[in-house]
Design a protein around this nucleic acid. Structure first.
Lengths: 142, 142
DNA sequence: CGATTTACTTATCAAATGATAATTAAAGAG
DNA sequence: CTCTTTAATTATCATTTGATAAGTAAATCG
C-alpha cells in the first residue's frame, strides 16, 4: 500500500497548510468585517469582475445569503456593482477603491508574514520550493 | 523581487489547497455533526489523547466554547474524557469506539476521493510528489 | 404576444458560533 | 494552612451564518 503512505502524507500536509495559512492571516481581518465577508472580498479581489451567481457557486453559499452579504459590503463601500449592459439581470461586481486599498493592505500583511517565514532560505532552496509548488499544484491540487 | 513571485505562487497554491480539500471532504460531514464539531473530532483523531486547553489553543476557540462543543460530542458518544491521575484538573480526551469508527469512515471516504484524483500517476511521479510534499512541509508549512 | 427561465432581492427564521461573567475543584506557592 | 493560579464548567447573550419562501425584473422561448 504505497498509495496509503502517500495519503497519510497528503493529510498531514493539508492539515499543516490550513494551520499555517490561518496563522499567517490571523490578524488580517479588518475589524468591521466578518470572516465570511473577508473571504468574499478575497475572492472578488482575485476574480473580479464577478457575478453574484459565481460567488454563490464558488463559495458554496445560497443566492439569498450571497445577496445579503454583498449588500453589506456595498454599504461599507468596499465593492461596486455594475449592471451588465448586455444582460441587465447580471451584475459585475468589483472592488471599490477603498476595497482595493483594504485588500492590498491585507495581502501586504500576509506577504510580510510569509517573508518572515521564508527568512533564511537560500536561492537554491527557493528554486526547489518553487518547483515543488508547481509540481503539486499541477498534479494534485488542480 | 524574486521573493514576490514566490509569494504569488504561495497564495495561488494555498488557495488551491483549500479549494481541493473542501471539495474532497465535502460530503463527509456526517449529519448530526456541525462543521466545527467535525473539525474538532479530526483534531482529536490525529492528536489524541488531548486536553481541553490544547484543543482551545490549537483551534483558536475560547475554553467555554470548547467545553460546550466537547460536551455535545460526549453526549453523542463520540469521545471519552479520562481524568489525568497525575493532575485531576486535566482531562485526556480520546475518540470513543464510535468516534473512531466515524472518523475511519470519513478518512476512508477522503482516501477514495484522493485515490481518484491521483488515479493515473506513475510510480516515478508518485515519488516526486512525495518528495515535494516533504520539502514543502519542512521548509514552508512547518 | 404570453409563458417560462434566469439573476437577483427581500424578509424571516433557525442554528451555529463567538464572547463574557461567574463558579468549581484541584494544584502550587509561600 | 491561606492565597493564587490553572483547568474546566455553566449560564447567558450577541452575532454570524444557513435555509426557505416569496417576489421583482429582465431575458428567452415558442
Amino acid at each position: 500500500m504505497d498509495n496509503n503512505s502517500l495519503f497519510q502524507k497528503f493529510v498531514a500536509f493539508t492539515t499543516s497548510v490550513h494551520q499555517i495559512t490561518s496563522e499567517i492571516s490571523k490578524d488580517v481581518k479588518s475589524e468591521s468585517l466578518t470572516p465570511l465577508q473577508y473571504k468574499i472580498l478575497e475572492y472578488i479581489a482575485v476574480s473580479q469582475p464577478v457575478t453574484l451567481s459565481e460567488i454563490s457557486d464558488c463559495m458554496h453559499m445560497s443566492m439569498p445569503n450571497t445577496s445579503r452579504e454583498l449588500k453589506k459590503l456595498g454599504e461599507k463601500q468596499l465593492c461596486d456593482k455594475i449592471t451588465d449592459p448586455a444582460d441587465r439581470r447580471k451584475q459585475g461586481i468589483t472592488l471599490s477603491a477603498a476595497g482595493e486599498a483594504m485588500m492590498n493592505e491585507a495581502f501586504q500583511h500576509i506577504a510580510i508574514q510569509f517573508a518572515e517565514r521564508m527568512g533564511s532560505v537560500t536561492d537554491e532552496e527557493r528554486k526547489e520550493i518553487e518547483r515543488a509548488l508547481d509540481l503539486l499544484q499541477q498534479k494534485v491540487f488542480y
